[in-house]
Simulated assay, not measured.
Amino acid sequence: MEWMVGFAPFAMVLGIIWIVQRGKLEEKKLAATAEATGEKAAQYASRVQELEDRVKVLERIVTDRGYDVATQIEALRDTVNVEQEGSGVPLTINDREKA
């Protein structure tokens, strides 16, 4: 029984150290979770802003210029095709025009 009385202060110190370390670990976990959540929120906010800008453009197309949306979409598609394929006539010396 006497050994338990001598051991009790050491056990208490070990318990206190364990509790303090456990608290620090929990704080680190919370900080990491908060940082990850903040980054995700920033990414979502950025994406929402991009989508809002696109909706504004669509609203402006529909309301400012009437309902000629199909023609404008086709014009945009033509622009994309020209940019992708290149513009103008290819310069090939071997394929000359024959008179």
Rank of each mutant, 00 (worst) to 15 (best):
G15P: 01
I16C: 09
I16Y: 10
I16F: 07
I17W: 08
W18F: 13
I19M: 05
I19Y: 11
I19K: 10
I19H: 08
I19G: 05
I19C: 04
V20E: 05
Q21L: 08
Q21P: 00
Q21W: 02
R22I: 01
R22F: 08
R22L: 03
R22D: 05
G23T: 06
K24N: 12
K24H: 12
L25H: 04
L25V: 02
E26R: 13
E27T: 07
K28Q: 10
K28N: 05
K29G: 09
K29H: 02
A31D: 01
A31E: 10
A32P: 00
A32V: 05
A32R: 08
A32S: 05
T33L: 05
T33C: 01
T33A: 13
T33Q: 04
A34V: 05
A34C: 00
A34W: 01
A34I: 05
A36Y: 00
A36R: 15
A36S: 09
G38L: 00
G38S: 08
E39P: 01
E39G: 00
K40C: 03
A41F: 05
A42G: 03
A42M: 05
Q43F: 04
Y44E: 15
Y44T: 14
Y44N: 10
A45L: 09
S46V: 01
R47H: 07
V48F: 06
V48P: 01
Q49I: 00
E50V: 06
L51D: 04
L51W: 04
L51R: 09
L51P: 01
R54C: 04
R54A: 12
V55G: 01
V55S: 01
K56D: 15
K56G: 06
V57M: 02
L58E: 02
L58W: 12
L58I: 02
L58V: 07
L58T: 02
L58S: 03
E59H: 11
E59A: 11
I61W: 14
I61M: 11
V62H: 10
T63Q: 13
T63D: 09
T63R: 09
D64N: 14
R65Q: 13
R65K: 14
G66W: 03
Y67D: 12
Y67L: 11
D68G: 08
D68T: 02
D68C: 00
V69F: 06
A70I: 03
T71I: 02
T71R: 09
T71F: 01
T71Q: 06
Q72G: 02
Q72N: 01
E74A: 04
E74N: 09
L76V: 14
R77P: 00
R77L: 07
D78K: 12
D78F: 02
D78Y: 06
T79C: 03
V80A: 15
N81R: 13
V82T: 14
V82E: 14
V82R: 15
V82G: 08
E83T: 12
Q84H: 08
Q84A: 13
E85W: 10
E85R: 15
G86C: 10
G86A: 12
S87T: 14
S87H: 11
S87W: 08
G88R: 12
G88W: 13
V89M: 06
P90W: 06
L91K: 13
T92E: 07
I93T: 09
I93H: 10
